[in-house]
Amino acid sequence: MAAFNIGADDLVDNPTPRVPVSLCLDTSGSMGGSPIEELVRGVNLFYDAIDEDDDAHDSAEINIVEFNSSAGLVHDFASIERLERISSLTASGATAMGAGVNLALDTLDRRKATYSGSGVLYYQPWLVLMTDGGPTDNIDLAVRRVVDLVEAKKLTVFPIGIGSGADMNTLARFSPNRPPLRLDGLKFKEFFEWLSKSVARVSRSTPGDTVKLDLEGLAGWAEL
């Protein structure tokens, strides 16, 4: 009988505590060409890795927010089982990073409210912010929201610069606890592999536990 209606109770059927992860990605014009292709490949690899890990498979819920001249939702939160791999992202326009981060935070808030309302246990969410440039809109509000959440231990944030044009000073404002990292070349693959392992590690802990990130693993993809 299990075969009936399997989608309907996805969220509440699974008692495993969730890790909501929002990928907030820069898809401005400058990302065109191989950066965006590598990014798409990296994201799909991330999905595959999560899918294959027994623990992360049941816990991770991922969404993608993109920002260029404005911000938009590529797909909302869903368990890995329900996520199709992305076929492409289009690079064009400016870098509305403030709007992108605000949208990502809004979606995270909504997801937490859904968990809370349905009685599903969760870990504090993760925000992955990736950009190859600097913001073209005002980021003050977004920065304040992120910093408040991080300081209240309600968010883990990973600001990642792509290429030499990434404005690391801006990214640093989003990261009160640790310096932002710059991707080594186009090592998206290595980064997302590391990210999936980190998500898996969280899934193996229990909510409330402090999880140590694998800092040694950073060496595989970050320029130090």
Binding site: G7, D10, V74, H75, A78, R82, E84, I86, S87
Partner: peptide, 10 residues
């Protein structure tokens, strides 16, 4: 039902 297998789920 929860939308299944869609890049833009929802």
């Amino acid at each position: 039902a929860i939308p299944a297998r869609s890049a833009r789920a929802g």
